[in-house]
């Protein structure tokens, strides 16, 4: 009697394990659909413009590109690992932490955007430089994201350390929509803010710029990178090359006319949330970033090292894991 019950329980668990093992098997795009993740952020102007202009569909002739909206990097890379999307635009932080645990599962196709982050401080906080952050509380959008890693590097260069590593700058995760209230109520004194939030808070008068985007790691730190799943790269290298072409085309378009990026972003924002940003704010936000297909190796090394120092990596990711695969790679 008890033996049978036990056997039943074992069978049940084995079934669950089998399901787990079987699920999310690598389903790559089989010619008819490619699922592409992106965010409704101003730093994602390149995919937004490309979608609006139908560039992906044109370059991937015959393969339908289904955009999937994400709100944060970890979900986007998790979805690639689960096989539920084939490609995505993500920041270097989630890419590095994901690769440290799932080596080789995600490949970099191309860069899309650089810069787009400012160090701002609450009005009246008296913070004028990174050195002034000593003993203060600084907001980051998430652990291990681009701005967090950038801040780690800025602090290191100024000889400071985050509190959880024995230093005296406290990093506080504040979701972007809460940043304004966190700054005005004094929950944090400063923030490493992604665009357009930095520009919004500065325009509001709630915060002043301490380091503008071109002073944050020379404005060359990658913020948006096009990545693909290993399955897609192995089975459909042609689609990866088509994605790279579409990405390059959209980057060129945005470089020629940055205002285009702002307008496209505002239209998408309106669709997604029913709101838009003021023209002056969107202009400032777009000015603080650069569309580019480049992924600067030195900057990526900085990101990897920062993620390592912060203890975010399960193993040290090698530089060539996060550099674009050759277009001709077969």
């Amino acid at each position: 009697m008890r033996g049978r019950a036990l056997a039943f329980a074992v069978a049940l668990l084995a079934l669950a394990a089998a399901l787990l093992a079987g699920c999310g098997g690598e389903r790559a795009a089989d010619g008819d659909e490619l699922r592409l993740g992106y965010f409704a952020n101003v730093t994602h102007a390149v995919p937004i413009v490309a979608m609006e202009r139908g560039i992906y569909d044109r370059e991937l002739e015959g393969t339908k590109v289904s955009p999937q909206l994400f709100i944060s990097g970890p979900e986007a890379v998790s979805s690639i690992l689960a096989g539920s999307i084939d490609a995505a635009y993500v920041g270097p932080g989630p890419l590095v932490t994901a690769l440290s645990r799932a080596p080789g599962e995600i490949l970099v196709a191309a860069g899309a955007n650089e810069g787009g982050a400012t160090l701002i401080a609450a009005r009246g906080s008296g913070i004028r430089s990174v050195a002034d952050l000593r003993g203060r509380r600084v907001a980051i959008p998430a652990h291990g994201n681009t701005q967090d890693l950038q801040l780690h590097e800025l602090l290191r260069r100024a000889g400071l350390k985050p509190a959880d590593q024995g230093g005296d700058v406290t990093l506080v995760v504040v979701r972007n929509p809460l940043l304004a209230s966190a700054i005005t109520t004094g929950v944090v004194d400063a923030a490493m803010a992604p665009e357009p939030w930095g520009s919004v808070l500065v325009a509001d008068g709630a915060a002043r710029v301490v380091l503008d985007s071109d002073q944050v790691l020379d404005g060359r730190s990658p913020t948006t990178i096009l990545v693909v799943s290993r399955a897609l790269a192995e089975r459909r290298p042609d689609l990866v090359r088509a994605l790279q072409r579409a990405n390059a085309e959209a980057v060129a378009l945005v470089r020629r006319d940055p205002a285009l990026a702002g307008a496209a972003f505002n239209r998408r924002l309106d669709e997604v949330s029913g709101t838009t940003l003021a023209p002056a704010v969107i202009r400032a936000a777009v000015d603080r970033q650069t569309a580019t297909t480049r992924v600067d190796p030195a900057q990526m090394q900085i990101m990897i090292d920062a993620a390592g120092d912060a203890g975010y990596q399960a193993r040290d990711v090698a530089l060539d894991e996060v550099l674009p695969i050759r277009p001709s790679a077969q």
């Binding site: 970890p74 989630p94 994901a98 440290s100 645990r101 998430a142 652990h143 994201n145 995760v173 975010y312």
Partner: peptide
């Protein structure tokens, strides 16, 4: 969400943010 407060929720969220399922 209120991550300035130390606690298990913050650690849980950290795990999510840095893709550390362990």
């Amino acid at each position: 969400i209120v991550s300035g407060t130390t606690g298990l929720g913050g650690v849980l969220e950290l795990g999510r943010e840095i893709n550390a399922i362990d």
